[in-house]
Write a protein that binds this DNA or RNA. Structure first.
Length: 291
DNA sequence: CAATCAACCTGGGTGC
DNA sequence: TGCACCCAGGTTGATT
């Protein structure tokens, strides 16, 4: 479900709503959501700590506790976080709100942080150091950080020799993009999703850099994309779905050239692109039979 | 090293 | 209605 802009939206709200809160207990409804620890160990280790900060790395939500400990959440495909207000005594107001609750962390103030996850792909970690979580330790550069420069993208494209779409989806290479924003970025940059990364020209790589930054910034401004499950901390859907150019728009007209948008499979992921705006180089062209 | 596919899960949508 | 099948925003690990 959530890519970086959705996680960023949630983290911004977490900063406002749970920093300073002290944990009284944790209810684990589905032990599988807690990585490596039993529900008893998890509860025992988290109780009494205060929320010191909320930050994000790639698609990971990182809640810093005091005394020092990191509560790290990966939302997987359908994970959701919400904060129950003190007024509602930890009893969900409606049945739909309680659906798929896996973990509830309650605070002294009677507020509570609720983790819901229909498909159970999400995970909550309680660690001393981010390095204890393999993907978090090995995360590529943040796509929107000030230190990520066009030449870094160019070098990274040249270093790997892979199809551009799976490369951009790989969080070890670049942190933040998921299926929606990779398709949107490649459309914006006019690059076919199967293009081999190392054959991209400097001009194409620079276009891709600008596209990624533009697409992610816009998505954050629109508070994320809600296709189906995504909700922010308040339970509100995002608004970015209204400005998508290709994702899930197969059969419709490309807003740039008017030709029909195609859907195909790349790296096992549903992939959307405009075959006119995003042509594949002549060498590889014979290989495609998409659309 | 890179590509593909299955696996982890639940549920919504579609077509017969 | 029921059922089979496809699809889903992520990541990992086995296989080719």
């Amino acid at each position: 479900m959530p890519e970086m802009p959705e996680v960023e939206t949630i983290v911004q709200a977490l900063k406002r709503r749970i920093v300073g809160e002290t944990i009284v207990d944790a209810l684990v409804e589905w032990p599988g959501s807690i990585a490596r620890l039993s529900p008893a160990e998890f509860s025992q280790r988290i109780v009494g700590r205060r929320v010191a900060a909320a930050t994000r790395s790639g698609k990971f939500t990182i809640i810093r506790l005091a005394p020092p400990k990191l509560l790290v959440v990966h939302l997987g495909m359908t994970g959701r976080l919400s904060v129950d207000e003190a007024s509602e005594p930890n009893a969900p107001t409606s049945a739909s709100q309680d659906a798929h609750t896996r973990v509830v962390i309650r605070f002294v103030s009677r507020k509570a942080l609720r983790f819901r996850d229909m498909r159970k792909f999400g995970r909550i970690y309680l660690v001393d150091d981010a390095c204890e979580i393999p993907l978090l330790r090995d995360l590529g550069p943040e796509a929107l950080s000030d230190t990520f420069k066009p030449r870094m993208l160019r070098e990274l494209l040249r270093r790997h020799r892979r199809q551009i779409k799976p490369l951009l989806l790989d969080q070890h290479v670049l942190a933040g993009l998921g299926n929606i924003y990779v398709d949107e970025s490649l459309w914006q940059a006019r690059i076919h999703p199967r293009t081999l990364s190392h054959v991209l020209s400097t001009e194409e790589a620079n276009r891709l850099y600008r596209a990624i930054r533009k697409v992610l910034r816009q998505a954050i401004r629109n508070r994320g994309t809600t296709i189906r499950d995504y909700r922010d901390l308040q339970g509100e859907p995002g608004e970015n779905q209204g400005v998508l150019s290709v994702y899930r728009l197969q059969g419709e007209q490309c807003r740039r050239c008017g030709h029909v948008i195609c859907r195909t499979m790349v790296a096992g992921r549903s992939t959307h692109y405009c075959p006119t705006c995003q042509p594949l180089g002549s060498t590889e062209y014979a290989m495609t039979s998409d659309c």
